[in-house]
Structures are given as C-alpha cells and as structure tokens.
Computed example of a mutant assay.
Amino acid sequence: MVRLFGPFVGLFFAVALLWSFGNGAYVAITEPAAPTAEHEFHKHPKDVHFASDGAFGRFDKEQLQRGFLVYKEVCSACHSLKHVAFRDLQQLGYSEAEVKAIAKQWGTKQPTFDPKTGDRGERDNLPADHFPMVYYAGQGSPPDLSLITKARHGGGAYVDSLLTGYQDQPAELLKKFPDAKTPEGLHYNPYFANLNLAMPAPLTGDGQVTYSDGTPATVDQMSKDVSAFLIWTAEPKLDKRKQTGWAVLGFLLAATVLAYLSKKQVWSNVGGH
C-alpha cells in the first residue's frame, strides 16, 4: 500500500514546491518591494590598492608598523585582537625586546584567577599572551578586529571606506525618505549596511598619531595603514602562503612536462606495429 501511494505523495510535494516557486516569482515581478534608503544610498567599498594584493603582492612591513600604531593609539580602547599574540608582532619587524615592552606597557592587563582562594586579579601581558579582550560593563564587547577583513565583503577596502566615509546625511535622502533620519546617538556612513552606526568617526583629523618614519599622518594615510594592518591580522601567513603556492605550481608544471615526455617515450613505438 505504501509503495502504491508513495509516488503520488512525492508528486504532490513536487507540484506544491513548483507552485510556491512560481507564485513567489510572480509576486516579486508584479509587486516589487518598496525602495528603501539602505538599498538606494548604501555604497560598495572604494577601489583601494594594498601592497599585499594579487598573487605577487607582499606586505609592506613599514606600513604594517604604522597601522599597528594607529590601532594602538586609536582603536585599541574599543576593539580587541583576541586571535593575535603579542609575539606575532615580530613578523612586522619588531625585536624581541620591543615586543616585550609593548606587551608589558599595554593598557589592558591579563585577568588572573586563583582557584584555591577564588581571588581574581590582573598581571602584565607576556609576549606569548594574546591581546586582551576589551569589555564594557553592561554593554558587552565591541566587535573584535582580528578577522574583520575576512568577515566583511571588500576586506581592507571596506575598512578603509568605512573609516573615511563619515558624512552628513544627503539632502536627497531626507527628501525621499523623511523617516530615515539618523537617530540621535548614531552616525551616518553610507558604507555601513544600514547607513547608521553607533561608532563615531575614530579618525578625527590629521596628526592624530605621530609616525616615527616621518610619513604625514593624514586621515587617509592612517585609514589605509590600519586597514593594511588588519589585513595582516586576518591572514598573517599570507606572504608564506603565496611563496609556497608558487613553488607548488612550479613543481606541478615540471611534473606535467616530465609526465608528458615520459608518455611520448613509452608509447613512441606503439603506432608502428
């Protein structure tokens, strides 16, 4: 009995699925969704070039050090790097002694807990420690930036566009969508998904940090430098991965040529018999 009615049950569900799909497509065509401010005024990331872009790109260590300085002086008060250890900074060109000093002088300490007494405390950071979490009592933790360039469409270009994209709401937006006025306490940024975000512009003007290499610390320069640094935090082994990739491709190419020549040699006399 089950075998008799089984095909009809399957046919019923197939027809129901096709009808639902067709009805949804018809409604989407005949009754398109009303336009929204987010859909019309949201911008895609700007076209920004970084030294690490492309198959031959490599990190610019001087830029990464400048970006780390921007993160340290501007961003670290609100955003953590929980997937990055202090000793990883040696990859940027810092010496072991410099890394120890950076870890020890970092504003946020490492939490400690004594299971025997139940006491909690703090200690200085060590090079082996990861950057400590930033936490606001009653508000939780702002987004961690370790993998932000992997988690957002556009990667480093998105971060750079967001940091430099703060502006007043366009008059055209308010005219077309009067109810879309930026709420009190939020800030308009067309590169953010819903146009308004709680974080105020972190880069407020030129000279906010002082670069040791003499590079002018303009808002645009600081934004690109910290974006490049966050590309590195998301994939610190990018340079090595590219080097390995080219070596593997060279090996595969050589192996392919050898395999083809071997095939020609082995089968060279087959056609004559």
Rank of each mutant, 00 (worst) to 15 (best):
N196P: 01
V134G: 03
V84D: 02
L258C: 14
F86S: 09
A51D: 11
L163K: 14
H79S: 04
A28L: 07
M1T: 12
G207I: 05
G93H: 10
L89T: 06
G154K: 13
G245W: 11
K43W: 13
W267P: 02
G121E: 00
N189W: 10
M199S: 07
T182W: 10
D144K: 15
F131S: 12
K46H: 13
E40V: 05
S161A: 06
Q208T: 10
A25T: 06
A198E: 13
D114I: 07
I148K: 10
S52H: 09
S212A: 05
D60H: 11
A101L: 11
Q90H: 06
R123K: 05
V99G: 13
S80Q: 11
G6D: 07
V70W: 07
S20E: 05
T244W: 15
K72M: 10
Q208G: 07
H153S: 07
C78Y: 11
Q90P: 00
P115M: 01
K104M: 02
E38G: 01
L163V: 05
A193E: 06
T108N: 02
F192W: 14
G250W: 12
L203H: 12
R123P: 02
Q139R: 15
F131N: 14
P45C: 09
L195P: 05
D160Y: 13
L69P: 05
V27T: 13
L174K: 14
A137S: 08
I102S: 04
H83I: 00
H42F: 11
A85P: 01
P115N: 06
L203R: 14
P45I: 08
P190M: 01
D213Y: 14
E235A: 06
A28H: 15
G185K: 13
V266P: 01
P45A: 13
V84F: 04
M1Q: 12
E122K: 04
I102D: 04
P32F: 08
P132L: 05
H273C: 03
V219E: 01
Y71E: 08
A201W: 13
L145A: 04
S95H: 10
K116S: 03
S161K: 10
G107P: 01
D206M: 09
H273V: 04
T149V: 00
H44Y: 13
G118V: 02
D206C: 03
A77F: 14
T244S: 03
A103C: 08
K104F: 10
P32R: 09
T164L: 09
P200N: 02
A85S: 12
W106N: 03
A97G: 10
A228E: 08
G138W: 12
L89A: 03
A55Y: 12
L81H: 05
F21W: 15
A180G: 00
K43C: 03
P132V: 08
V2P: 06
H273E: 00
A255L: 15
G250E: 02
Y188M: 01
K242I: 02
T30D: 03
S76N: 06
P202M: 04
L195V: 11
L11C: 06
E184T: 12
R241N: 12
M1I: 05
G165I: 07
P7E: 04
G155D: 06
L252C: 12
Q243K: 08
A128E: 11
A255K: 14
Y94H: 14
K46W: 15
L81R: 12
L258A: 14
V266W: 15
L230W: 13
A255F: 15
S52V: 06
A55N: 05
Y26C: 04
P178E: 04
S227P: 07
S212M: 02
M133N: 08
L186R: 14
H83N: 10
